[in-house]
Amino acid sequence: METAQITRLVEKYGDMLLKISYTYLKSRADAEDAVQEIFMRVIEKSPQWTDENHCRNWLIRSAVNVCKNKLKSF
């Protein structure tokens, strides 16, 4: 993915992902780490989404999975 695409995703979905992560983790620092991990996954995997809704759903599902994994590790 290009830097401009990542920047657009962070600007558009960053706050939403932070809220979702905070809901699960109850810590702003842990939620910020989770969001960072989500965007690292986007950079590493470069998923090909069919539309904007698919992208949003992928990011939300990733947020939930990352948070659940963090809760398991505590």
Results as ranks from 00 to 15, higher is better:
62 S>E: 03
30 D>V: 05
53 N>P: 06
28 R>P: 11
21 S>D: 06
54 H>N: 15
43 I>M: 01
45 K>N: 08
19 K>G: 15
47 P>S: 03
15 D>H: 14
65 N>T: 04
36 Q>I: 07
55 C>H: 06
54 H>K: 10
64 V>H: 06
30 D>L: 10
68 K>S: 08
3 T>C: 11
17 L>N: 00
21 S>M: 11
53 N>S: 13
69 N>E: 09
47 P>Q: 02
57 N>P: 06
20 I>W: 01
64 V>Q: 07
35 V>F: 06
9 L>S: 06
74 F>G: 12
66 V>S: 03
72 K>Y: 12
39 F>K: 00
67 C>M: 04
13 Y>F: 12
28 R>E: 13
72 K>M: 10
51 D>R: 04
68 K>H: 08
64 V>N: 07
13 Y>D: 08
61 R>K: 11
71 L>D: 04
17 L>K: 00
71 L>M: 10
8 R>I: 05
67 C>S: 03
3 T>I: 11
49 W>Y: 07
1 M>Y: 11
26 K>C: 14
71 L>K: 05
64 V>P: 13
54 H>P: 00
26 K>L: 11
44 E>F: 05
12 K>R: 08
19 K>N: 15
39 F>W: 03
31 A>G: 01
46 S>N: 08
37 E>N: 07
5 Q>K: 15
16 M>C: 14
1 M>D: 09
74 F>S: 15
47 P>R: 02
5 Q>P: 12
63 A>N: 03
25 L>F: 09
6 I>V: 11
15 D>P: 15
68 K>M: 12
3 T>F: 09
28 R>N: 13
28 R>L: 11
58 W>Y: 08
2 E>T: 10
68 K>R: 12
1 M>F: 15
36 Q>V: 08
68 K>F: 12
56 R>V: 03
57 N>R: 15
37 E>G: 06
10 V>T: 13
32 E>K: 05
69 N>K: 12
21 S>G: 07
40 M>G: 02
45 K>G: 06
35 V>C: 04
27 S>M: 04
23 T>Y: 15
10 V>E: 14
60 I>F: 05
44 E>R: 02
24 Y>K: 07
67 C>A: 09
62 S>P: 01
24 Y>V: 04
59 L>S: 00
67 C>E: 00
2 E>G: 10
10 V>F: 10
41 R>E: 05
31 A>P: 01
15 D>K: 14
60 I>S: 06
19 K>E: 13
69 N>Y: 11
39 F>Q: 00
49 W>G: 02
68 K>Y: 13
32 E>F: 10
65 N>K: 08
18 L>P: 10
49 W>C: 09
57 N>V: 08
11 E>R: 07
32 E>P: 03
54 H>W: 14
54 H>A: 14
65 N>L: 12
14 G>M: 01
44 E>I: 02
14 G>F: 00
29 A>V: 10
19 K>S: 15
26 K>G: 07
46 S>R: 09
12 K>Q: 12
30 D>R: 09
8 R>E: 14
46 S>M: 06
29 A>M: 14
38 I>N: 01
12 K>S: 13
69 N>P: 03
52 E>V: 05
51 D>V: 00
27 S>T: 05
27 S>H: 04
28 R>A: 09
